[in-house]
Computed example of a mutant assay.
Amino acid sequence: MIRCACACALLLAAAALVGCDKKRTDVARARVSGKVTLDGKAVETGTVTFDAANGEPPGTCTLLDGRYEGMAPVGKNKVRLAAMRKISMKEKMKIDGPGYDQTVEENLLPAKYNDGTIIREVVGDGPNTFDFDLKSK
């Protein structure tokens, strides 16, 4: 009897997990594309992330030579832009000494482009071309 109850509980837990997983893969997505420039010059590499902020996985597009293309959730999305580079702590902090040779990542774009304040509406049946002309100041 105890084994039967344990087996039933295990089956119910597995069914619940499968149901949760199905919800995450059924997210409505649409193709997005565009250009990203900083002070009029194409951003060489980075990411453009579209986040519906509703618990569903965001869509992250790779940025290469100022252009990106990929899939994003349909609806209003917070857009986060990043162009990371590796830099030594010595170079970043302008300090010399032991341990400052290790590298860290630094976003070349101002923080205001990665804080979620940029909002874009992705539609399921239309062009979703979003160009971002960023300014360093």
Rank of each mutant, 00 (worst) to 15 (best):
I2N: 11
R3W: 05
C6W: 10
C8P: 00
L12P: 01
L12C: 11
A13C: 09
A14N: 06
G19K: 00
G19V: 03
C20P: 00
C20K: 08
K22W: 05
A30Q: 11
R31H: 12
S33G: 07
K35G: 02
K35R: 13
V36I: 14
G40F: 05
G40Q: 08
A42P: 05
E44V: 11
E44S: 13
T47W: 03
A53W: 02
A53V: 09
E56Y: 12
E56V: 13
G59C: 11
G59D: 07
C61M: 15
L63K: 04
L64A: 14
D65S: 14
R67W: 02
Y68F: 15
Y68H: 03
Y68D: 02
M71A: 10
P73E: 02
P73T: 01
N77I: 09
N77A: 09
N77R: 09
R80V: 03
R80P: 00
L81C: 08
A82P: 00
A83I: 07
R85G: 05
K92P: 00
M93K: 07
P98N: 10
T103W: 01
T103R: 05
A111H: 06
Y113E: 08
N114P: 06
G116W: 10
I119W: 03
R120F: 03
R120A: 09
G124A: 15
P127N: 14
P127D: 15
P127R: 12
T129L: 05
F130D: 00
D131R: 02
D131M: 06
D133H: 13
K135F: 07
K135G: 09
K137W: 11
